[in-house]
Amino acid sequence: MPPTPAEDAAHILLQEQTLTLEQFDASVAWTLGSMLHAMAVERHYVLVIDIRRFGRPIQPLFYAALPGTTPDNARWARRKSNVVGRYHRSSYAVGLRLEAQGQTLTQRHALPASQYATHGGSFPIAVPAAGGVVGAITVSGLTSREDHELIVEALCRHLGHDYKALRLR
């Protein structure tokens, strides 16, 4: 039996609490982005990868658009990343919570859909020693759940965690 949205939401919280970094800089962004790129090419995925550090201004640290993507993929990535920047939660977790409430981000928080997307595929880059969420790692091109899980898999590889234990069921 497939998991319920509530079960996914609870498991995403565990993912977010577990998949934190000791540090985050351009070198780490390059390592994670390159890993995601290699995974996507190997699997013949058509997607965009965007890794950024939050602040004023936002600092893009890694970007790749695989063959077959369109400018819409880049816009989706930016909109999903904006959700992480605002709520410090994965875009998928925010979307599942709103879905359970029967609301959209526009209805609940008056945020424009042109700037925010609560679809899966953006995950917070949390560095506890730096005070929490400092950026986002985002992919766009697969389904919401697949975009989310690709990032989780890459973070597990990078951090040495067992992906089978942390993946969504």
Results as ranks from 00 to 15, higher is better:
Leu21Trp: 02
Glu16Ser: 01
Arg43Cys: 12
Ala74Gln: 09
Ala77Gln: 10
Ala65Ile: 03
Asn73Gly: 01
Lys80Ser: 03
Leu19Pro: 03
Ala38Asn: 14
Ile58Arg: 15
Phe62Ile: 12
Leu14Asn: 00
Pro67His: 07
Gly68Ala: 01
Arg56Cys: 11
Gln23His: 15
Met39Asn: 13
Val46Asn: 03
Gln23Ser: 14
Leu21Asn: 05
Leu66Thr: 09
Arg79Ala: 14
Gln23Val: 09
Leu47His: 01
Gln15Gly: 08
Asp50Ser: 14
Glu22Phe: 06
Leu13Asp: 12
Pro57Gly: 02
Leu66Arg: 01
Ala26Asp: 10
Arg52Thr: 03
Leu13Asn: 01
Leu21Met: 07
Asp50Lys: 06
Phe54Trp: 09
Val48Cys: 15
Thr31Lys: 13
Ser27Lys: 14
Leu36Lys: 14
Phe54Tyr: 12
Arg79Gln: 12
Leu61Met: 15
Ala64Met: 10
Ala64Leu: 11
Ile58Val: 15
Pro71Ala: 00
Gly33Trp: 04
Ala74His: 08
Ala65Glu: 11
Ile58Gly: 10
Gln17Asp: 13
Tyr63Asp: 04
Ala40Leu: 03
Ala77Trp: 01
Asp25Val: 05
Asp25Cys: 03
Lys80Glu: 05
Ser27Tyr: 13
Asn73Ser: 03
Val46Thr: 15
Trp76Met: 04
Gln15Ala: 00
Asp50Pro: 04
